[in-house]
């Protein structure tokens, strides 16, 4: 299981990376926005994408849309971990095809639940 973590703040990437490691996911890579993330996704063999929303360059929602529009990537599960909490935005993300939505600040427990739920669905 290879996971790409996309967030413009290195500390947040590190926190997510550590939490994922505790959950048993040790194979992770990082990108600081959609512009760097998309080519990585297209060339690397990633199985799962965790992305922030608000980033310079290409935002998380645009990255999500780009992933869904890409023939080879469109089935990839995407978890949004973001401070954006407006109802309209959550609905927008849902319509764009997000698989899970976690609002910051979050707990390790919440992240674990959402990831497990996503894999249950994907495998089930």
């Amino acid at each position: 299981m290879k996971i790409l973590i996309v967030d413009d703040f290195s500390t947040m990437r590190r926190i997510i990376k550590n939490l994922l490691r505790d959950l048993g996911f040790t194979n992770t890579a990082e990108a600081d926005d959609g512009v760097t993330a998309l080519p990585m996704l297209q060339s690397g063999s990633f199985d799962f994408l965790v992305t922030d929303w608000n980033m310079p360059g290409m935002s998380g929602i645009d990255l999500l849309r780009a992933v869904r529009a890409d023939e080879r990537l469109k089935g990839m599960p995407v978890l949004m971990v973001t401070a954006e909490a407006k109802r309209d935005q959550i609905i927008e993300a849902a319509q764009a095809g997000v698989n899970g939505y976690v609002v910051k600040p979050f707990t390790a427990q919440v992240l674990k639940e959402k990831i497990e739920k996503i894999f249950e669905r994907v495998n089930g």
């Binding site: 929303w53 608000n54 935002s59 929602i61 645009d62 973001t82 401070a83 954006e84 909490a85 407006k86 109802r87 309209d88 935005q89 959550i90 927008e92 939505y101 976690v102 609002v103 910051k104 979050f106 919440v110």
Partner: peptide
């Protein structure tokens, strides 16, 4: 535009159009 993102909501519990916690989401 909401797509550009707004950052953290400061008074999430007082606003109607904002999810104030993970349960709301």
């Amino acid at each position: 535009s909401a797509s550009h993102g707004e950052g953290p909501q400061i008074h999430a519990d007082k606003l109607d159009d904002v999810a104030s916690c993970q349960d709301d989401v």
